[in-house]
């Protein structure tokens, strides 16, 4: 299997005045092509920091992260922007849609600057929102907004999809719909997907579950029996 990300001895600390807070203390991790990985751990375990570094939003203090042979820890700001633009799809806990753009326009905002994007309508169809294409974010429910966010993330046909607590702000029923969308995208587009959650049930939809605590990967647990989100309960 092709390795998309390869992280080696990644550390990250924040200097908060006189105290140095270690968010990551030497993480080694791979993400493989087409894989669905769930990052599980309590808050403060370093999940988000790791995801932000993988996504080119933050820089490691030490260690290397290779994306298909490209060392993003050494990349310049401009290169990171291009990296995010071409290869990474993001889904956030609070959706972060542009309120002044309709669903389809939110997606178009990304396809306009991507190299080989799908049509915005196509991306919305993948998340089951064809009938809501021309609604503004204020006219959509939380789950619908998150599905627009997923459509926006995948419309550029990214090689990686990074989701930080995508269901964190949703009730479980809506959460399932959103996870289904992520699952479908992962299966149909083959984007390597990393989902952060602190909900152990969600982990059952992954190929691999990475447990994190205290800034380290505590153990990696392969999941032979990958479940569909429909079968999850929490």
């Amino acid at each position: 299997m092709e390795t998309v990300f390869s992280a080696r001895a990644v550390t990250k600390f924040y200097d908060m005045g006189e105290v140095r807070v270690h968010a990551l203390r030497g993480v080694d991790l791979e993400l493989f092509a087409g894989e669905m990985m769930v990052l599980l751990g309590p808050s403060g375990s370093g999940k988000s920091t790791l995801l932000n570094i993988l996504g080119g939003l933050d820089r490691a203090s030490a260690g290397t992260v290779q994306y298909r042979g490209f060392d993003i820890t050494q990349a310049k700001d401009r290169e990171l922007t291009q990296y995010r633009r071409k290869h990474v799809g993001f889904v956030f806990q609070f959706y972060n849609l542009i309120p002044s753009l309709t669903a389809i326009e939110n997606v178009a905002a990304v396809t306009e600057i991507a190299d080989h994007p799908m049509k915005p309508a196509e991306a919305l169809e993948l998340v089951g929102l064809t009938d809501r294409m021309h609604h503004f974010p204020s006219q959509l429910s939380g789950g619908q907004q998150q599905r627009v966010a997923i459509a926006r993330a995948i419309a550029k046909r990214p090689s990686v999809l990074l989701c930080d607590e995508p269901t964190g702000a949703l009730d479980s029923e809506t959460g399932v719909v959103v996870l289904e969308a992520i699952d479908r995208v992962n299966r149909e587009l083959g984007a390597a997907t990393a989902v952060i959650t602190h909900n152990a049930d969600i982990a059952r939809m992954a190929n691999r579950v990475v447990h994190m605590s205290n800034g380290l990967v505590s153990h990696v647990e392969p999941n032979e029996n990958r479940r569909s989100p429909r079968e999850l309960h929490w």
């Binding site: 922007t81 071409k86 956030f92 972060n96 542009i98 990304v110």
Partner: peptide
């Protein structure tokens, strides 16, 4: 700032 930062995350350049 939130809106603009989201766009930056999505790969928009500073100029854009």
């Amino acid at each position: 700032s939130r809106e603009l930062a989201s766009l930056r995350v999505l790969g928009y350049t500073r100029g854009e």
